[in-house]
Amino acid sequence: MSTISREEVAHLARLARLEVTDDELDAFAGQLDVILESMKTLAEVDTDGVQPTSHAVPLVNVFREDRPQPSLPRDAVLAGAPDTAEDRFRVPRILDEEA
């Protein structure tokens, strides 16, 4: 009995905006199953009353003074974009055309 099905992998890929191929789905489903199987061992560990660690260094909020600081020049940032128009990032249409 596998932990993760091919259909689940396809669903996760969609959630993560990955257009995976059929071949990839076959490979990933098997590989992820092996990986997830090994992770089930964590269920053995008694973690009752244990606080989670999200970060190695215990930190509280880090603040700085609210003063304007120089940022990167607009042209330098736009130079790395795949497409620009009128000093902005250009993107494909966002809304589907009306049916």
Partner: peptide, 19 residues
């Protein structure tokens, strides 16, 4: 873009993390 730009290990980890 993400399908064309990412290799197999990166995709595996993104899917694993999403799971």
């Amino acid at each position: 873009t993400r399908e064309a730009g990412f290799g197999p290990e990166v995709k595996r980890r993104i899917i694993l993390g999403t799971y």
